[in-house]
Design a protein around this nucleic acid. Sequence first.
DNA 1: TTGTACGCGTTATCAC
DNA 2: GTGATAACGCGTACAA
Lengths: 363, 363
Amino acid sequence: MGRKRLQEPADGRPTVHTVAARAGVSIASASRVLNGIGGSPETIRKVRAAAAEVGYVPNAIARSLQSQRTGLVALAVEDIGNPVYVEMMRAIESVVASSGRQLLVHATGGRIDNETALLRRLANRYVDGMIVSPIRVTDDHLTALVDSPVPVVVVGQLGADAPVDNVRTDSRHGVALAVDHLVASGRRRIGFVNGPLDTVPGTARDAGFRAALARHDIRLDEDLIEVGDFQYAAGRAATERLLARTDPDALVCANDLIAVGALHALLAAGRRVPQDVAVVGMDDTELARMMFPQLSSVSLGSAARGRRAAELLLQRIADPTVPPRREQVPPSLAIRASSGPPLPAPRPAAPATTHPTSEGVTA
Amino acid sequence: MGRKRLQEPADGRPTVHTVAARAGVSIASASRVLNGIGGSPETIRKVRAAAAEVGYVPNAIARSLQSQRTGLVALAVEDIGNPVYVEMMRAIESVVASSGRQLLVHATGGRIDNETALLRRLANRYVDGMIVSPIRVTDDHLTALVDSPVPVVVVGQLGADAPVDNVRTDSRHGVALAVDHLVASGRRRIGFVNGPLDTVPGTARDAGFRAALARHDIRLDEDLIEVGDFQYAAGRAATERLLARTDPDALVCANDLIAVGALHALLAAGRRVPQDVAVVGMDDTELARMMFPQLSSVSLGSAARGRRAAELLLQRIADPTVPPRREQVPPSLAIRASSGPPLPAPRPAAPATTHPTSEGVTA
DNA sequence: TTGTACGCGTTATCAC
DNA sequence: GTGATAACGCGTACAA
C-alpha cells in the first residue's frame, strides 16, 4: 500500500491540497471552484476564502502538463535588433499578448543549424507554436519545418509548395517598384547594395533587380552591384567599395540598415543625396523616416506580416487540422526626400529639406 | 486496485514508457540511460536504440514539473521597439541563451497595473526569474517586487533600499556630463527636452539638469525646458513648442529617440546643427551613430546593464540565498558631430561632416 | 453536488 | 545495476 500523498509541499507554497484541506473539502471540489465550474454556494465560499487566506496561485507547469498547453509562442529571427524584426516582433507580441499568451524570442544569428536545432527542440513541447523567419533554407531545414510536432508559421519566401503556413511578400516586385521609380526620375546608373546571395531574400532581391533593369532595357553593369551583410556597417563598407570603382546616380538597398550605411558612405564621399545620388531603402522601418534626408523605402509590410503570422498560428493552435495556408502581403513604395520627387510630376516648390514628418507618397 | 498506467499516449507520441517497453526494461532504467546516469552497457544500447527508433524526445513540461525549473527567463520593458530596450534585450538574450535558457518578452506599455499584474503572475512559476525595467513605481508595485516568489532583477533606479537585485546607472550624472560638455563648448542657453515627469527616469533627469545648470551658475529659464513622451514624435513636437517660444543654443534630450525628433525639428526650423544649436542625446544607441550629423549621446550602458542584470538573475536562480545586490554602471559621454568638439581643444581640421564611423570621444 | 482515484510524463528513492 | 513506485500539482472521469 503506497503512502498517502503529502498535503503540504516542502517549500511551503500552497497547492490545491492546501486549499482543500483548509476549506474542509476534497481537492476535486477545490479545483472545480477555482476553475469556476460548479460547487454549492457554501463550498464556493469556503474554497474562495481558503484560497485567499493562503494566497493560492495555480501552478502553471502542472496545469500545462494536464492541459498539454503551455500558453507560450516562440519567435525565431536572425537578429532581434534589426529594425525590421523589431517591428515584426512588436506586432506579434501584441497579437500573442491579447490572446492571453506570451512570447518567447530566439536570435538565430542566421545560422541554419541553430535554427533547425530550434525546430527539432519543438518536439519537447515547450511552446504551443512557433513563428520563424528563415533567411537561409536547406532541405534538412525544410523537413524539420514540415514534420514539426507543433504548429509552425513561416514568415518569408519558402521554396516550392511546402505544406506549411506561410506569410510572404513579393520582394522581387518590391525591388521593381524601387527601380521603376528611379528610372521614372531619370536615373540610369542604378546601383544595388544587396545582402548575402546565399540567403533567400538576397537571391530574390538580386533576381528582382536584374529583371527590373532588363524590363527597362538598361544594360546591367556588374560594377554597380555590391554585396555585404544585412547590417549598417556592411552596407556602408559595400557602398564604399562600389563608389571606389564606379559612379552611380542612384542606389537601391536591400534593407534600411544597408541604406543608412549607404547614405553615410555617400555623404562622406561628398555626394549629395538625392541631387547626385538617389537612395531607396527596403522594409520601410521607422528608421527610414528618422534619417535626414528621409529615406525612400519599399515597404514589405513587416508589421502586417508579423500580425498575420501570429493570427494564423493562433488559429492553427486552436484547430490543427486546417489545411496549410499561404498569404501574401503586397509591397509598396514610400517616396521621400532621399530619392526626390518622380520626374513625371515636377514640383517647383519641393525643397531639398523635406519636412521630416511628411509621410512618403505611396506609389 | 488501480488500472495499469497506459503505455502509449493517445496522440501517439513516444514517452519513456514507450522506450522502456520497446527496450524491454523498466522506465526507471530507461530514464537513467536517457539522462546518462548509470546502466549496463547492454541496457544502454537497448534503450538508446529504442529511443532512436521511436524518435523519443523528453517532454519539457513534465521535466519542469519534476525539476521545478522551466528554463525560461522573462523580460518586461515598456516598449520592445525602443532602441534602448532593444539593446538591452539583445544583451540579455545572449546571456540567457548561452546558459541554455530561453527568453520571454513582455511589453508593458509603461502601464503600472500591467506590470504589477505580471509580477503577481510570477507566482504561478511559469518562468524561473524575471528582469524588469520599470519607468513608473508605486508602493504596490514595490511590494510586488519584493515578495515575488521567483527571483527578480530590476534594471533602473529603485526608490530607497528595496531588498531586490538592482542594476542601475546614474542618469543625473549622465545629464551632468552632457551639460558640462555643452558649457565647456561655450553654450549658455541650454534647453532640455525631457520625458514624462511622472516617470523615474524623467524626474531623475530633470533633477540632474537643474543641478548641473546650478553648478555652472547658469540661471534656469523654464522656457528652455519641455516635456513629452520618450518617443520620436513626441520629441519632435516638444522641440517645436520649445523653439516657438525661445531660442536655445543647445539641447539636451532625455533619450536618443527624442534627440532624433529634436534634430528634425531644428533642421525643419532652419537651425544648423551644431553651428546654431548643439544636440546631445541619451542612451547612446546605434541610432545615434546612424544619424547625420551623428548624435553626441550619453551612454547609460544599456547593453552592459542588461548583461549584468541577466548574470545576476542567473546567479540568484542558482542560489536564491545570496543577499540582494546593487550594482551601478557609470554613464559616459560620446561626443560626435551634433555637438561639435569641445572648446578647450580647438581642432582646426575638424570638418562639419565628421566621418560617420568615427567613434565618439568618450569623456 | 461531492469525493476518490487516475493520468499528464518525468525524475528520484529505495529496496532488491 | 535494476525495477517498482512515489512525487511534482493539476484537472477530470466516474461513482456515490
